[in-house]
């Protein structure tokens, strides 16, 4: 990047590193951090809405909905989430291709599963073999977001379900006494109040989501783990201007520090949010705030 970088062999240590850390592949490495942040930014709201839908359906008085919601929550418990990640990526991909196959090639007669192969017609392939590179990458990222959302949606559903049940029952009875319909009680009384009860669980979930992002690597995305392994590996002068030994340990140390920083920042942010939400609530946190301001 700098002008003195043209001949790395002549540089002193500090300059060598300043060149090494700003070369082309390292910018890809830094960009992959943005990928992780983008995944968090997209997944969190999507998973939350999945969770909200799951919790609503688990609360439903119509049995099939309630079973559906409860099964969704129950299945994700008890099974390692990494198994889900590995499962959904193939399953979703095959599901999409199967649907497109049915729609686009209705007169195809061969079975789709032939022995160990999964065959759909050319037009149904996702993404199309002819599409440019970025479409493949975006599609992979899109599958990852859905997978994360499904898994974390179930966790969020569980937390929100608990939060909804924690709202004092007297509140709901009062709403009924005022003549509110079930729908009005739900949206105007229950939903605004449940957040403070759900927040400890949701903040825990956010921490877990942060710590699950390295699993992107298993979904075949070129994320920070991928680049750390690539860049850290031993390089000889044959292939690069910057030969070095096995530095993977240091790259992963950097990732470790990155995640510790993320955790610390989130902890501080969530604490602030909790203070704000506790304001005026009939919880011990709210009581503490009230005492602080009156004292």
């Amino acid at each position: 990047m700098f002008s003195y970088c043209s001949d790395p062999d002549t540089l002193d240590t500090f300059r060598w590193f300043s060149c090494y850390l700003t070369n082309g592949v390292h910018w890809s490495f830094y960009a992959s951090f943005l990928k992780v942040l983008a995944l968090l930014a997209v997944t969190a709201p999507v998973a939350l809405s999945f969770g909200f839908a799951g919790a609503m359906s688990a609360r439903s008085h119509f049995p099939p909905f309630s079973w559906l919601g409860k099964t969704y929550i129950a299945i994700v418990r008890g099974v390692p989430d990494i198994a889900f990640f590995l499962f959904f990526v193939i399953a979703l991909d095959q599901g999409f291709e199967w649907i497109r196959h049915k729609v686009l090639c209705p007169d195809w007669t061969d079975p789709i599963r032939q022995g160990n192969d999964f065959l759909v017609c050319q037009a149904a392939k996702l993404p199309l073999g002819t599409s440019p590179e970025w479409v493949h990458e975006t599609y992979g990222f899109f599958l990852a977001v859905i997978t994360f959302s499904i898994v974390f949606g179930a966790f969020a559903a569980n937390v929100l379900f608990g939060g909804m049940r924690a709202v004092p029952h007297a509140q709901l009875e009062t709403a009924e006494a005022y003549g509110m319909s079930r729908r009005q009680t739900f949206w105007k009384i229950l939903v605004p109040q449940m957040w403070v009860y759900a927040l400890p669980g949701l903040s825990n979930l956010w921490m877990v989501l942060i710590k699950a992002t390295p699993l992107l690597f298993l979904l075949g995305i070129e994320d920070i783990v991928y680049w750390a392994r690539e860049l850290g590996g031993t390089k000889t002068s044959k292939f690069t201007q910057y030969p070095h030994g096995d530095w993977r340990m240091w790259y992963f140390l950097a990732l470790l520090i990155f995640y510790l920083g993320m955790t610390r920042v989130s902890e501080l942010g969530l604490e602030k949010l909790m203070r704000r939400l506790s304001h005026g609530q009939a919880t011990s946190g709210g009581e503490l705030l009230r005492k602080e301001t009156t004292a």
Binding site: I210, K211, A212, T213, P214, L215, F217, V225, A228, R229, G232, D246, R248, M249, F252, L253, L255, L256, Y259, L260, T263, R264
Partner: peptide, 17 residues
């Protein structure tokens, strides 16, 4: 505060070196 997955990677390369 850090993912177990990264801890595994770090520990492996640490022991390797």
């Amino acid at each position: 505060g850090s993912p177990l997955f990264i801890q595994f990677f770090f520990a492996y390369f640490f022991f390797l070196s």
